[in-house]
């Protein structure tokens, strides 16, 4: 079966520090692939490479067999790849509901000058997604007044609103309180399964990775140190020492 996303022999370096050193990876339809690794190992760079934000020095990225290596982020987004960021990327002076409705409109009706952003159908869809991530009560708040954890949730909801085939999540649970972490992941995974969205997520919380990922890639100094099912990977002594922090 052809992978939904396939990166081959990627090389990229910043000021001589290798973030990807001949790395190849793939993700198949329906998978939840987690990338873990120490800080600065190049995990976020993988997401940047896959979404056109950073272009590799060499190597290629294919989406459904189509070469997207040189495409701009907006073109890749239109092909069905959405992204939630480590630091939430929101329209901070707009209301939460407007953030959502603009994302929904971007998918199906941006180029209308004379119809309002807010339609009944769009509002209902936005509210349903906000309910899913637990932000229903915040819908009329200006987004820069939300606590960091809620901003993170909104960022994920905005990405979901694009109805993507592939969702890239950069540390979805960072900034979310310990109490909200698993309920959020349950809701998120439920939504992903229900909508048949494939997900690639960078994560630091090993409990989250162990519970929700089908497969784990362990990133270290621009290379994949280990790969496999979480149960197997977390038994690897090198992984335990360099990533999990258990000697």
């Amino acid at each position: 079966m052809q992978p939904i996303l396939e990166a081959k022999d990627l090389h990229v370096a910043f000021n001589g520090v290798k973030a990807a050193d001949g790395v190849s990876l793939s993700i198949h339809d329906g998978e939840f692939l987690a990338i873990i690794g120490p800080n600065g190992s190049g995990k976020t760079t993988v997401l940047n490479l896959c979404t056109g934000y950073v272009r590799p020095k060499s190597g290629s990225v294919h989406l459904d067999g189509q070469d997207i290596t040189r495409l701009a982020p907006r073109a890749i987004a239109r092909l069905g790849v959405a992204r939630a960021f480590q630091i939430p990327q929101l329209f901070s002076d707009q209301r939460v509901i407007d953030n959502m409705m603009l994302s929904l409109a971007a998918k199906d009706g941006l180029w209308t000058m004379m119809r309002p952003l807010e339609t009944e159908a769009r509002r209902a869809e936005a509210e349903a997604l906000l309910g899913l991530v637990g932000l229903a009560d915040d819908k009329n708040r200006i987004s820069n007044t939300l606590p960091e954890g809620h901003r993170k949730l909104l960022d994920i909801a905005v990405a979901l609103a694009l109805k993507p085939r592939l969702l890239l999540l950069d540390e979805p649970t960072s900034g979310v309180s310990a109490l909200e972490r698993f309920p959020l992941m349950e809701a998120l995974m439920g939504a992903l399964r229900q909508r048949q969205i494939t997900a690639l997520f960078v994560e630091h919380d090993m409990d989250v990775v162990a519970r929700y990922a089908n497969r784990v890639l362990v990133w270290n100094a621009g290379n994949i140190m280990a790969e496999g099912h979480p149960d197997e990977v977390f038994k690897d002594q090198r992984v335990l020492q360099s990533v999990v922090g258990v000697a």
Binding site: R74, F91, D93, A106, V158
Partner: peptide, 29 residues
């Protein structure tokens, strides 16, 4: 007419340029 334009998705996208161009790009806009 301009009021409707500013209240449309395109008008909201215009205001959004001021706050977050990165997110706009990632929305495919």
């Amino acid at each position: 007419g301009i009021h409707r334009y500013l209240d449309s998705p395109l008008g909201h996208a215009l205001s959004a340029v001021h706050t977050n161009e990165v997110r706009l790009e990632y929305l495919g806009i």
